[in-house]
Amino acid sequence: MSGNGNEHRKFLKSRTYKLFKEGDYLSDELIINRKQDVLDLSMYKQKVDNGTVIFVMTTHCSACNFDSMTDYMNKYNKFNYLLLIETDHKFISELVSRVSNDKLSVIGAEIDIICKQLKFDVVPWVFALNKKGQFVAGREFNSIKEAEFITKPLLRVYYNEIWRNEINAK
């Protein structure tokens, strides 16, 4: 492999499906593993006040920066969060203890199973959904700044004061 730092992006290189489109709606169910276990996603389309941010990560990926993700969650606590992660249960417990957000759900998932359903092709990945469960953004990330840039459509709506102050400071 070349030393350009993008080796993680080759993870799901043989895509045979189209990537998600902004404006598409989150499905009601997601098969999360080869055993065909189903995750009910309908709650992210109803009774959501401020939108949802979905992170997809694995501990087998050197580019998956869990500190950036937890910093983002702690900074922007108005959102509902779903972390789909391929790892062991011990790591999940450690990770949950680092996040001071009671709107976080952490689900163990097999990345290659969920990528086709959510229509993404690399990890780490972040999706932003409006309060109706509609995708407004999504892309790979590995820093809090990148996550903020990708989720800007949600941040502008629900953290308008932060964005106004940032613009005035320039």
Score class of each variant (00 low, 15 high):
residue 2 S to P: 12
residue 60 H to Y: 11
residue 151 T to I: 12
residue 152 K to M: 13
residue 38 V to A: 09
residue 38 V to C: 00
residue 122 V to P: 01
residue 113 I to W: 08
residue 145 K to I: 10
residue 147 A to S: 03
residue 133 G to L: 09
residue 96 V to Y: 10
residue 26 L to R: 02
residue 104 L to R: 00
residue 102 D to Q: 14
residue 159 Y to L: 14
residue 34 R to C: 05
residue 158 Y to R: 13
residue 114 I to C: 02
residue 138 G to H: 06
residue 89 H to Y: 08
residue 115 C to I: 05
residue 87 T to I: 06
residue 162 I to S: 14
residue 130 N to P: 03
residue 150 I to Q: 04
residue 57 M to F: 09
residue 129 L to I: 03
residue 140 E to W: 12
residue 134 Q to M: 10
residue 158 Y to M: 02
residue 86 E to Y: 07
residue 145 K to S: 15
residue 137 A to Q: 03
residue 116 K to N: 04
residue 163 W to A: 04
residue 72 Y to M: 12
residue 134 Q to E: 14
residue 68 S to G: 08
residue 161 E to H: 15
residue 7 E to F: 11
residue 6 N to F: 11
residue 60 H to F: 14
residue 33 N to D: 14
residue 167 I to T: 11
residue 159 Y to W: 06
residue 46 Q to T: 11
residue 64 C to Y: 02
residue 22 E to M: 07
residue 151 T to K: 07
residue 68 S to D: 09
residue 40 D to Y: 13
residue 160 N to A: 12
residue 21 K to Y: 13
residue 43 M to W: 06
residue 120 F to A: 09
residue 165 N to T: 09
residue 53 V to D: 01
residue 7 E to D: 13
residue 152 K to C: 05
residue 141 F to T: 11
residue 112 D to I: 06
residue 84 L to A: 08
residue 106 V to H: 02
residue 76 Y to L: 13
residue 153 P to K: 02
residue 166 E to K: 13
residue 13 K to S: 15
residue 168 N to M: 11
residue 84 L to Q: 05
residue 160 N to F: 14
residue 112 D to M: 10
residue 132 K to L: 14
residue 163 W to I: 05
residue 24 D to R: 00
residue 115 C to V: 13
residue 133 G to F: 00
residue 147 A to H: 12
residue 168 N to K: 14
residue 145 K to P: 05
residue 19 L to T: 07
residue 84 L to N: 07
residue 118 L to G: 08
residue 147 A to D: 00
residue 101 N to L: 08
residue 13 K to H: 12
residue 93 S to P: 02
residue 3 G to A: 03
residue 117 Q to L: 10
residue 139 R to S: 15
residue 83 L to A: 06
residue 158 Y to F: 15
residue 69 M to F: 04
residue 78 K to F: 09
residue 114 I to Y: 00
residue 20 F to W: 10
residue 131 K to L: 10
residue 122 V to K: 06
residue 151 T to M: 08
residue 161 E to V: 15
residue 35 K to L: 13
residue 161 E to Y: 03
residue 127 F to L: 01
residue 124 P to F: 07
residue 84 L to Y: 00
residue 80 N to H: 02
residue 20 F to G: 04
residue 41 L to M: 01
residue 164 R to A: 09
residue 19 L to I: 05
residue 66 F to P: 04
residue 110 E to N: 07
residue 169 A to V: 09
residue 140 E to N: 15
residue 142 N to L: 06
residue 86 E to A: 02
residue 62 S to Q: 06
residue 51 G to L: 03
residue 141 F to E: 07
